[in-house]
Amino acid sequence: MRETLQLLIYGVQLGVIYALIALGYTMVYGIINLINFAHGDLVMIGAFVAYFAAELLGANFPLAIFLAMLIPACLSVAIERLAYRPLRDKPRLSALITAIGVSIFLENFPRMLPFIGPNYRPFPMLIPFKNFTLPTGAVLNSIQIVNILVSVALMVALTYIVHRTKVGRAMRAVSFNKDAASLMGINVNRIIAVTFFLGAALAGAGGVLYSMTYPMIDVLMGIWLGTKAFIAAVLGGIGSVPGAMLGGLIMGICEVVATALYSELGYGSGFVILILILLFRPAGLLGKVKIEKV
């Protein structure tokens, strides 16, 4: 019992971070059908922003996470404007290649900057660390609690924006049918920019939470994390916001449990689960199968 609960805690803590990052993938894919390869690197940028905010400005946790959401979000809007928008009516995959190009740039350019460089840096403790022992014997720590609370709050906020606000309604409309939405007077370019903004803000927050849990950052940290989150998005049904949340949680928990059972192959477990789910539910857990009309 202690074991199971303990593993569950580890899994959920990892899963909520995957979910935050997966949301950005799923929103961008839902709206312009682009696998945004540079998304993982925005996670890294978020982590670095928080690092510098804390080290240079002495920022506390709320300020650091705010900046870490704001700056990648603006960067993401700029990237969309410069590298993706000109290609929107071009073959779908050319935007994918610019995304890869942007990703290579984001990974390598900071490495050449003298104040960032290739080093692994310790990430500062933004909140005090404390262990709490639960009645069952499992241990829960303060960082895990903050992770889960912040992630859940952000996801609730996002769900509110998507379902209860005008912008959210416009986002859903654009993702459903761009041309029709534009005919209804929706500024499609602006809505797509908003989507990139929101997705990157969540990625930045994910970057901070991830770096607090595993307190080390470097310029390549986004690659693998991004891939995992992307897989989580697909698992939940790419294009679906609740799907990304569920997918992230499942990925996190499965990975931790599989690693505990057989660590030699644990890290590949996410992929195996993905293949199994896609075989039975091709559109992912909460994805809708699009019916094609002629």
């Binding site: 590298a83 935007a95 290649i97 190009g101 740039f105 990974e107 390598n108 350019f109 050449m112």
Partner: peptide, 13 residues
């Protein structure tokens, strides 16, 4: 690799 990344973006643009 910095140049390579930029070159890729421009090529596609």
């Amino acid at each position: 690799l910095v140049i390579y990344g930029i070159a890729l973006v421009f090529l596609m643009l």
